[in-house]
């Protein structure tokens, strides 16, 4: 298959800048349309202001098989709130009027197929998205999407897990662009204990020569983030942030926590 070369965008520019400054990336994950349908734009702006480097927006799906209870519940609520893919892309356009923070979309296939496959990637790019994460799609099935993402200059962020072999890490790294999503455990998001993952992250770093390696799943505190950032190029935090948003809700408190996270790494 003919693949157009992936062209750098806000995401790669940001990650290059961070590497040059010897800084680690803080990626924050939000479920779009949670807690209220229209919470997303102000929340993203608040997180960007507080020091997030990259925002990952989750497209809510009825059956989010990579997600734990916290993100599942937030997805259910967002669907009840009336979120749709069209609405999310509208929110992205609104965010883009105010900030240049790199934005990555994470989604399950079915809503994307319903929206229209190529139309989704074209519209995502037009609205201001920089990269795509499709956790359901294994390496063997990525070709069909790569032609769209490359045509529309979106980063393809593929995932590796502790079960991924060295050879496969190299293959996934080769196909990926933007960054490599290093899943901390064999399980779903938001698990309580990240355990001893240093040797695993080191192994991924050893084999993934092309992309920055960012670790996600189960990172809950500034201490967790600090531990992992010693070996990785950045951390991705989702469930813990959504829990904070659900529990405290005030912008100042969330902003303070984000600053702590950024300072810790």
């Amino acid at each position: 298959m003919k693949r157009e070369k992936y062209e750098s965008n806000r995401l790669t520019t940001k990650l290059t800048q961070l590497r040059e400054r010897n800084e680690k990336a803080l990626v924050l994950f939000l479920t779009a349309g949670y807690p209220k349908l229209d919470s997303t734009v102000p929340l993203v702006l608040e997180l960007a202001q507080a020091g997030a480097d990259i925002i990952e927006l989750g497209i809510p799906f009825s059956d989010p098989l990579a997600d734990g209870p916290v993100i599942q519940a937030s997805s259910q609520q967002a669907i009840k709130n009336g979120i749709t893919l069209e609405y999310i892309l509208g929110q992205v356009k609104e965010i883009r009027k105010h900030t240049n923070i790199p934005l990555v979309l994470m989604g399950y296939l079915n809503p994307i197929l319903h929206y229209g496959e190529e139309k989704f990637f074209a519209d995502a790019r037009k609205s201001g998205i920089d990269g795509i994460i499709l956790p359901e799609v294994p390496l063997e099935e990525t070709d069909r999407f790569l032609s769209f993402t490359r045509k529309h200059h979106l980063a393809d962020i593929l995932l590796v897990s502790p079960a991924t072999t060295d050879k496969r890490i190299r293959e996934i790294d080769e196909v990926s662009s933007g960054f490599l999503y290093c899943v901390s455990t064999t399980g779903v998001t938001g698990r309580s204990n990240i355990g001893d993952i240093e040797s695993y992250v080191k192994r991924v770093k050893r084999h993934a020569k092309k992309n920055p390696v960012l670790v996600g799943f189960g990172i809950k505190t500034p201490t967790d983030a600090q531990r992992i950032a010693q070996h990785a190029d950045g951390v991705i935090i989702g469930s813990a942030l959504i829990q904070k948003i659900t529990q405290v809700g005030t912008a100042t408190e969330i902003g303070d926590w984000v600053r702590q996270l950024k300072n810790a790494i």
Partner: peptide, 19 residues
Amino acid sequence: GVLHGSFSYLLQDKNGQVE
């Protein structure tokens, strides 16, 4: 539609949310 890794017939709404 696609659910649990299979492309097959699905009960779903117009946005692709599984019923």
